[in-house]
Design a protein around this nucleic acid. Structure first.
Lengths: 356, 356
DNA sequence: CGACCTTTGTCAACCGGTTGCCAAAAATTG
DNA sequence: CAATTTTTGGCAACCGGTTGACAAAGGTCG
């Protein structure tokens, strides 16, 4: 039942191709060494360092490894080297569709590069986030933080221990991937202006969100450019429910077009307006942010400024891998483009909106 | 901010609270041993095996550990023991909202029990799924497969190496968590019957899906019980688009109520019917499955049979942990209840539906 | 007070790779 | 063909915990 030196047995019978070992524990480089008749360290070199071993020895070892169905023990490798071929991704809320794309993008890039992704969520809590980050940091090669809730100082602290990339945020000295909101916002505001709107309301996200500020500033700038009036309205929480609650304020503001911090707010707002008999888009146009899953389920379908979340995930993982593979200088803040996705919730103003 | 013996030190100077070590690498049990004046193996016992060490030594060691901000090196621990405190979860499609709940449930249970969750997706491919499973299996203590696409034999093969739990599937000899569809289906069909419907169409999912068969059988049985006619219609794919495509067949079938394999199909179907001028629910009632995120964004909101996906994830993780912690006998197939969520897409039949 | 049983702590081997150092072997060169 | 350089492979230490075997110390009892 034991390994070694089956090589020169002609593999006549069917079980000759079965791995020689029978126990459930997997083969080690020592088994390979015995089978191939070389030293374990030679096996180690053949399998990790390329070109450090003669071609025929290499072949001998690879064949033996294949025969034994050898798979490297990640822990044994990680112990001396510290390398784990694992990345961590922490998101604020697993059920928030904004993050789905990020998760998928990061996962696919990681897998493609033979890394494994570990996922954790912070449940929107800065403390939980930090705890999770600390815990995972001991196990992974690098960390991706998507829309982190903790403060800059802590992020930098983590970044001193292992490479960190942040998404939807900028932190000095930490590489990041952020959507460049201006293009999408510009398109949206120009479209609103062209459709006769003169006043735009921006429904803000959580005050501590870095992104809501960027978006508001983008909206403000684009409105100035197009000579539109604009006003910011706070929201209780960035969810469908929060969107419902802000509907009264929106109507009271006299704006005929609304842009919201995210699509969830937009959807809730639309539901509430429709329930109150306010036609969308005839009386009020609505533009969301992100183009989340389900944004086109509504009637009318939601016009929104799409952030390429999958690309964010992909780029963040790629950036992290670059750093891990020794790139000294990486672009500190990678921008990805946003674009307007025009659907039914925005359009020409019919009933003249602000006669007062 | 820091733990350990800062209590009786007046925390005068700022660096008094800093850990004693200066380098970036973290403390080991040897550092603790030196600081506490005991042998490293004593430290190991104090920190893992309870009651194996005298109370005062225990305290000494714990204080030293806290002072050094010691955190165990998972690799060093995993190497001799094989335990990693890590679970793997493989889902068919990260962007399919059906899995969000599962992911969140599993993640929260794992974290609560001090395990970490590793996530991978199979992109709906049985091969990718198997590859991912094999790769992760070397690294984790156990594996959760959500709606696996590979065949029973391979699942059993994996289960021989490490504990496995499947969700939305039953495999002989492998513990599983499956929604019991009958309750929800029964509620739905009774409701349809009470609203005057006489013929129900079931839009099926992918033929290889274990679940679509269960649901069809449930629908068939419930319809028989309520003396309703029922018919099964195939779909091209279980997505919004697939739902649109099946709309013609639905109308042609003469059914006045439709139940679909999942909510995506239901949403697509509703969009297409409305586009064709067929009133929902006045002419055709629609009932989906799962109650995914966004099911209530549509107009009318979608009536659906909710599967408690979060509970599935929670239960699966808990089951797996039970097995890992030595429970010999675990219930082979855990059932979770489903329930009807009544919204606007189903209701009383107005125009008499099948006069032909 | 000595025999015997616990409790507590120490020693050393081990998990499975990696890697610096060195010697043997092979290839190159004069 | 010997001398020198370059390859190649072997030895052994190391990563940081865990654990069985055992000794020392402490406690109980006749």
């Amino acid at each position: 039942m034991s390994e070694s030196r089956t090589q020169d047995l002609s593999d006549s019978s069917a079980e000759a191709r079965k791995p020689v070992r029978s126990g459930k524990s997997s083969a080690t480089i020592y088994d390979i060494a015995k089978l191939a008749g070389v030293n374990p360290s030679t096996v180690s070199r053949a399998l990790s360092k390329p070109g450090r071993v003669s071609a025929k020895t290499q072949k001998l070892i690879e064949d033996a490894a294949a025969q034994l169905e050898y798979r490297v023990n990640p822990f044994a490798r990680a112990l001396p080297t510290g390398r784990t071929n694992t990345l961590a991704l922490i998101v604020a809320d697993i059920t928030n569709p904004t993050f789905f794309g990020i998760i998928r993008g990061a996962e696919s890039t990681a897998t493609a590069r033979d890394y494994t992704l570990m996922l954790a969520e912070s449940a929107e809590s800065a403390d939980t986030e930090l705890t999770a980050a600390r815990r995972m940091l001991t196990t992974v090669d690098g960390l991706i933080l998507a829309s982190p809730r903790m403060d800059d100082a802590r992020i930098r602290e983590l970044a001193r221990e292992k490479p960190v990339v942040v998404i939807n945020r900028q932190v000095d000295g930490v590489p990041s991937v952020v959507p460049d909101v201006n293009k999408g916002i510009g398109e949206a505001v120009r479209n609103l202006a062209a459709n006769g709107h003169r006043k735009v309301a921006y429904v803000a996200g959580p005050p501590q969100s870095w992104m809501t500020t960027r978006r508001w500033e983008g909206v403000k700038a684009a409105c100035e450019w197009s000579h539109l009036e604009c006003v910011q309205l706070p929201s209780s929480k960035p969810t469908v429910d929060g969107g419902r609650q802000v509907a009264r304020d929106v109507v009271a503001s006299g704006a005929t077009a609304v842009m919201t911090y995210n699509d969830l707010l937009a959807i809730g707002l639309m539901q509430e307006l429709q329930a109150a008999g306010v036609q969308v888009p005839d009386r009020i146009s609505i533009v969301g942010f992100d183009d989340i899953f389900g944004a086109d389920f509504t009637t009318p379908a939601l016009t929104t400024i799409r952030s390429p979340m999958t690309a964010c995930g992909t780029e963040a993982a790629a950036l992290l891998l670059e750093v891990l593979h020794g790139a000294e200088e990486v672009s500190p803040a990678l921008q990805v483009e946003t674009e307007l996705v025009l659907r039914g919730s925005s359009g020409r103003l019919l009933a003249s909106g602000h006669p007062a």
